[in-house]
Amino acid sequence: MTARTFKEVCAHSLMRTVAGFVISLAFLMAFGLYLRARPILVTKPLEELLFHTVWNPSQGQFGLANFIISTIWVTAIALIIAVPLSVFTAIYLSEYAPAKIRNIARPVVDLLAGISPVVYGVWGILAIVPIVRDYLMPFFSEHLPFFPFASDNYTGFCTLTAGIVLAVMTFPIIISVTEEVVSRVPFELREASLALGATKWQTIKLTVLKKARPGIIAAIILGVSRAFGETMAVLMVAGCAIQGFPRSIFDPAYPLPALIANTYGEMMSVPLYDAAVLLAAFILLLVTMLCNIAGWGILLRTERRGM
């Protein structure tokens, strides 16, 4: 073996080892979390952990239901706000906007994705909390005092606030993926539709969006995964308190990521406490992983089909 081929072999195996290590980290992490969460899984039935609402670690009660519901609430609100806004923005950018605006808007959207979550959290406290506290909450409690608006939480730190902040945080991913899949729809397909006398909006609605639909769904799933796992910003604006089952968008929320960040490392002497929190982490990891796999899977599949 010459020195050159030796170096060749070394370089190859070094990089393979490093890459293998980095990639296997994801699996190691999932496996590690599972191992640490196992003590509670063997002592308590899974349905009790997932569907019971009482969280009282010192009494040995570890119902995660309220946290899970909180997470779903917050994610749902974020999506209800983010999906229409970002999909319309993406369609505007790829279909209507002149190249100049598109070239400015694209990097701005990417910039939004790079802002640290803590900044969104601060923005939420300074901008969204007062709006919710002073305008939205009084308005709804006066005019629409029923589910899911009735609440006695007047602080502004609530599910809705967290949802709004999360919505803004999910804009970039939904906009950029949607914009990409929409602009990847072949130009000739638009021509074919327009040549039949369709208007631009008919062409977009009936043909372009239909062709891009799997990609848009993937974009939304990636948005879900972002909203579901986001911790810092939510922690800062959601109120993070449990007053029983969260019934209103103006009640405080306490989503899973916030629970983990807030409690892990404290009160570790309580038996099973650490396993319960790590179970929460494991659930979070599993859901976001599945969302990401589904989202990217759809994107890759549509790409391969030559969309």
């Binding site: 072949p186 000739e188 539709s193 039949l196 369709a198 009936l206």
Partner: peptide, 27 residues
Amino acid sequence: KKMGLLLQRPQVLPMSIFDNVAYGRRI
């Protein structure tokens, strides 16, 4: 609407055969 167009590569719309033909009349 007065002019049909055939392109180099056929561009079928992402829908059924029936809906492709009916597309123009529907819009």
